[in-house]
Design a protein around this nucleic acid. Structure first.
Length: 490
RNA sequence: CGGGAUGUAGCGUAGUCCGGUCAUCGCGCCUGGUUUGGGACCAGGAGGUCGCAAGUUCGAAUCUUGCCAUCCCGACCA
């Protein structure tokens, strides 16, 4: 058997890249830093979208759509915000091309310069809050609970498929509230939604926490996040939910009149997850044979591979396959019957392992005769022969088991790679092994910065509900009241 | 944007130092046949501006210059 992927052991980064391309999820495009998301990868993203969108709607949100372009002046209205994004913005300066007089194709028409440059949105707070000004006058207009599915552009220096691309797909929720308490509550509610989605759909255990000032979103008062641990021990920020205070309301003059007749600025939140979740999904569950998908997000959960010699057997076996497919679909299972006559079963087995299909059913003449099928699990690679009778119930049960097993495995991996450190040497040593390190920190940005320079590790978050504990900062020895999570991150 | 490297068929490659049947091999693709319970085999076939441009030369994938692109390592980041 020829090896298709680099192994995780020899080169994790290479393995990841190979896997994304070989499993047909995405590819590099002609545009630097921008990827093509291929149909199979997009189908997984659509599954994520469906589940999240439903969760947003269940928590009272509605979808809307705002422009791709943001006038430059809007972006600069909130000082911290522009500070954070200025260095990675794509700018539109002209609106027309013309033929080059030297006959070398088209050039930008210098006559067609825009009065004001437009920024391709790196995020939509500014254009949205500029719009909200017109939508909000009274407490009766609040809360405003809006989400948008969109693409954004951040001109990154170095990109990696799904994890960091110049253009990416995401959703961004932008809500407006009458009180700070309500806005904080919303921020926390959406963090819970993200954690729920990560754990119950993606089968990825996450830690909910708050970012330190250094890691906070540009323009936020508080940034909450969910942090996940990848197989190589590095941390991945899987979602963020920001309490924006009145920063954007003040920048865009968004006021409302309260019940008491007094005017006040509106309180804001924003929250988002992106196609980066695809990267998290891949790096949490997959193995050296390829992708491993949790059943809830698999475009198809079961693939049926017919095995045959003659044309006659082909007909018989495919007929059996079709009736199994029909029966499974009655139970709500997503099934693909691969009746291609152009590839051998062994080829198909490998292909679906590469693509992470949770369950494979092989059916041959022997099975048809015996009333059985061979069922193989992608997560454990175990095979067993099952009776056709009651197959659907067993398949449904197996899919649930796989979903559960993936989560349990990921959780135990995280637990095995979570350490405490009380001294600097120990801290360094634990970081080098990889994983999360709980350590004391004196609470200053300078210390955090210094630790980052020395170790490349950042404070991933201060976990919610963190127990207080007297201790000394790992670097400075100054007093500390709680441990925070340090890790190297994507 | 600094440091390093690389551009040869859809993909991966040999050849570049030392210019001259050199455009090599594997995968993939097409046709026919035999195959099909873990990536089939045999036979035949198609496919190339050797990154782009200029130069040196009788002759350039090979030498020179310029440009472009990509990858890796840093600083920046969902």
């Amino acid at each position: 058997m020829s090896k298709v992927l680099a192994s995780r052991e020899e080169n994790y980064a290479q393995w990841y890249n190979d896997l994304v391309i070989k499993a047909d999820l995405a590819d590099n495009s002609a545009v630097r830093g921008c990827m093509v998301i291929k149909p199979y990868g997009y189908a997984i993203w659509e599954k994520m979208q469906q589940a999240l969108d439903q969760m947003f709607k269940d928590t009272g949100h509605v979808n809307a759509y705002f422009p791709l372009f943001i006038p430059k002046s809007f972006l600069s209205k909130e000082a911290a915000h522009i500070e954070g994004f200025a260095k990675e913005c794509a700018v539109v300066t002209h609106y027309r091309l013309k033929n080059d007089e030297n006959g070398k194709g088209v050039i930008v028409d210098p006559e067609a310069k825009l009065e004001e440059e437009l920024i391709v949105r790196p995020t939509s707070e500014t254009i949205i809050w500029n719009t909200y000004r017109d939508w909000i006058q009274s407490y009766r207009d609040l809360p405003l609970l809006i989400n948008q599915w969109a693409n954004v552009v951040r001109w990154e220096m170095r990109t990696r498929l799904f994890l960091r691309t110049a253009e990416f797909l995401w959703q961004e929720g932008h809500t407006a509230h009458a009180t700070a308490e309500e806005a904080v509550e919303e921020t926390r509610r959406m963090l819970d939604v993200y954690a729920d989605f990560a754990e119950n759909f993606m089968a990825i255990p996450v830690i909910k926490g708050v970012k330190t000032a250094n890691e906070r979103f540009a323009g936020a008062v508080d940034t909450y996040c969910i942090e996940a641990m990848m197989q190589d021990g590095k941390a991945l920020q899987a979602g963020t939910s920001h309490f924006l205070g009145q920063n954007f309301a003040k920048a865009f003059e968004v006021k409302f009149t309260g019940k008491d007749g007094k005017q006040d600025y509106v309180w804001a939140t924003s929250w988002g997850v992106s196609t980066r979740l695809m990267g998290a999904l891949i790096m949490t569950h997959s193995d050296d044979k390829g992708l491993v998908l949790p059943p809830k997000l698999a475009p198809f959960q079961v693939v049926i591979v017919p095995i045959y010699r003659s044309d006659e057997e082909y007909q018989t076996v495919c007929d059996a396959g079709r009736s199994i497919k029909k029966e499974l679909e009655r139970f709500g299972v997503r099934v693909k019957l691969d009746d291609r006559d152009t590839h051998k079963p062994g080829f198909k087995f490998n292909e679906y392992e590469l693509r992470g299909v949770p369950l494979r059913i092989a059916i041959g003449p022997r099975d048809v005769a015996n009333g059985t099928v061979e069922v193989a699990r992608r997560d454990t690679l175990e095979k067993e022969v099952l009776q056709l009778a009651d197959l659907s119930n067993k398949v449904v049960h197996l899919l649930e088991q796989i979903q559960q097993n993936l989560y349990t495995k990921a959780l135990s991996h995280r637990e095995q790679n979570t350490h405490r450190a009380d001294h600097w040497d120990e801290f360094i040593q634990k970081l080098d092994i990889g994983g999360f390190v709980y350590a004391h920190w004196d609470g200053t940005a300078e210390t955090e910065e210094k630790i980052k320079t020395l170790t490349k590790a950042t404070i991933r978050c201060i976990p919610l509900g963190n127990p207080s504990e007297e201790g000394a900062c790992i670097l400075t020895g100054k007093p500390s009241t709680q441990r925070v999570i340090f890790a190297r991150a994507y």
